[in-house]
Amino acid sequence: MTLPCVEKHINSSIYQSLSLAVAVGLSSALLLGLNTITSPVIAQRVNEDKLAAIERVMPSSQYQNALLATEHPFVVNDQQYTVYNALDQQGQASGYVVQVSAKGYAGPINLIVGVDASLTILGVRVLSHSETPGLGDKIEIAKNPWVLSFNQKSLSNTSSKAWAVKKDGGEFDQFTGATITPRAVVNAVHQALSDLAVKQGVKA
């Protein structure tokens, strides 16, 4: 049996507010504790994913530095890039890894491009996209080897006109029923090379 004075106290707005405040405080403390524990693990997983993506376009034998520590953004004509600098044992540039986004048919196509010091392409891979399955998704290496056609291409051995799909007079194949997707990727890779050459002062 609850005494009237106790029941009145329990039903009071002050008591309810204090109870809510204590509950919120305990929940916040618990979330903060979990975040403190899991944040380093999540950060490690993110770095592992980045390194795995980089390894596809920049072999570890190509550099001797902590590549992720060199991450920096740069912008050219509203086009945003993320760049990683690869360095040799003497600390000289041995290559670059560039992340760039292209405007595909169904949305952004996120790409990663690896080049050596002369800006010759070592590899290109698609990180994510929303292109049509069976058509535009052939930009994925798991679906089609098309993306390998960028290997060893550079601004010096491939003319500006050749940096296009064959339908537009260039050297790169297009996909039947999905020309927009490969065109977007070719244009983005070419533009990334051009902007990187200007930024790094590399003669094409």
Rank of each mutant, 00 (worst) to 15 (best):
S17Q: 08
A53F: 11
V189Q: 08
T70E: 08
Q79H: 14
V165H: 08
K203D: 09
L135S: 02
Y63I: 03
A192M: 12
N47K: 13
A188P: 04
G33N: 09
E131R: 05
V76K: 11
C5V: 12
A142L: 10
V202K: 10
I180K: 08
I109L: 06
M1L: 09
G91H: 03
L193A: 07
S19K: 05
A53K: 14
V98F: 15
A117Q: 04
I141R: 06
S118I: 01
P4M: 03
E48T: 11
K167F: 13
K103D: 15
V126F: 09
V57T: 03
V6P: 00
S27M: 15
N110G: 03
S130N: 05
E71H: 05
F150T: 10
V57S: 03
D195H: 10
N47D: 13
A86T: 04
T70F: 11
K143V: 00
V41S: 06
D168L: 15
Q152S: 15
A66H: 04
L122A: 05
V6Q: 04
Q89S: 12
K161N: 05
L127D: 00
T36C: 01
V41W: 08
F74W: 12
Q79T: 09
Q64S: 10
L155K: 04
Q200V: 10
L127A: 01
I180Q: 05
Q62Y: 07
L127M: 04
P40R: 03
S39M: 12
D168N: 15
T181H: 10
V126E: 03
V76G: 04
R45T: 02
N85C: 03
I54S: 09
V83Q: 15
I37H: 13
A43Y: 09
V22F: 14
S28K: 06
N65R: 08
T38H: 04
V147L: 15
R56T: 07
G104V: 02
Q99K: 13
S39D: 07
S160F: 14
G114T: 04
A197Y: 06
N65W: 09
Y105F: 14
S101C: 09
V189M: 05
S28G: 07
Q174I: 03
C5K: 13
I42Y: 09
A86W: 10
L20P: 02
V165M: 03
Q80R: 15
A197C: 05
V165T: 14
